[in-house]
């Protein structure tokens, strides 16, 4: 690790006052400490914000607010989450290990970096790690890489499970800046596509910190599912994952949500398939047709063609599981 100065902030504005180009913030540390050990993150000063950010889950007029410092385990065990937003708990429990979930924060989950092997291997070129150095994954080992939304500069995927559920539920990210001003960013606008600037993962303003996540009340609590396909049964990143949620009335789909992890640089919404499902009868034929719509324009890399039929199966399975049969 590169030497750094360490300090602790007990309030968000105090933490924000320390923000500059060489400062980084640490909460759970499950990703950042690792990146620092590998010299991928090299902050000159590190600010501990575990006591600066809100750590509560609160019911609001419109729905729920999850503080940025709420750790994964209490988030997945929270009574309100389980009763009204169970998709969140399902996604969280599909990720990492119990130890890591005890440490990892909600805000940090949004800001975690890709797990592309070339991003972690500092001896290889990587446009995300060093802008303009080239992408090693495109001609290289890319079975974990993206199948949609990528560019000729980066084919990395976002590793989070929680974010897939948050994207499906149309959450928003409340950020606070140095002047104390807060703004809400729609979840699907928070993370970026790589384009020509793959070094930037998200649209968090340079002078701001994530304060909390807001989710509006919805009718998806009864019929939702999270399916994650990976190389081993537990404690592995997704090859593909699907968050599905249905609002059903007498087996007719009033509204549907479908999002995926492991397929793109950001949690990916299958909007066209969602539109198709609206008004249809919930059955296997409908689900297969929706899955076909989702996969129709995907383009795999040299080593991950398997992801496309795998995704189709995962979408159908997730929609089927929504019916709780």
């Amino acid at each position: 690790m590169r030497p750094f100065l360490f300090s602790k902030s007990s309030a968000i504005n105090q933490a924000l006052a320390k923000k500059n180009g060489t400062t980084q913030y640490i909460a759970g540390g499950t990703n950042l400490v690792d990146l620092m050990k590998k010299h991928i993150a090299e902050p000159e000063s590190l600010v501990d914000i575990t006591s600066a950010l809100p750590a509560k889950i609160e019911v609001t007029a419109k729905g729920i607010q999850i503080g940025a410092m709420v750790r994964n385990t209490p988030l997945a065990n929270d009574a309100i989450i389980l009763a009204k937003y169970p998709l969140i708990a399902k996604a969280v429990l599909a990720g990492a290990s119990p130890q890591i979930r005890n440490m990892a924060s909600t805000g940090g989950n949004l800001l975690q970096r890709t797990r592309c092997p070339y991003f972690y291997d500092v001896t290889t070129p990587c446009n995300k790690r060093k802008a303009g150095s080239g992408c090693s994954a495109i001609p290289g080992e890319n079975r974990m890489s993206a199948i949609v939304g990528y560019s000729d500069q980066c084919i990395a995927v976002h590793p989070s499970d929680l974010c897939v559920a948050l994207a499906a539920l149309d959450a928003s990210v409340k950020v606070q800046d140095k002047s104390g001003k807060t703004q809400s960013i729609a979840f699907t606008d928070f993370h970026r596509l790589p384009g020509t600037t793959p070094e930037r993962d998200n649209n968090l303003p340079a002078n701001a910190l994530i304060h909390s996540i807001e989710i509006n009340e919805n009718a998806f609590a009864k019929n939702c599912a999270y399916v994650k396909v990976r190389d081993r049964d537990s404690y592995a990143f997704a090859l593909v994952s699907v968050a599905a949620a249905l609002n059903l009335k007498d087996n007719q789909i009033v509204e549907a949500r479908l999002a995926s992890g492991g397929v793109a640089h950001k949690p990916w919404r299958w909007l066209e398939a969602e539109q198709y499902l609206k008004g249809k009868t919930a059955n296997a034929a409908t689900f297969e047709a929706a899955a076909d719509i989702a996969i129709k324009d995907l383009r795999a890399q040299s080593h991950n063609g398997f992801k496309i039929p795998m995704l189709k199966g995962a979408i159908e399975t997730a929609l089927q599981q929504c019916l709780n049969r």
Binding site: G29, T30, V33, T73, Q99, M103
Partner: peptide
């Protein structure tokens, strides 16, 4: 609570 000491400063 169980935690990883290698990722804890």
């Amino acid at each position: 609570e169980r935690a990883l000491s290698c990722l804890t400063l």
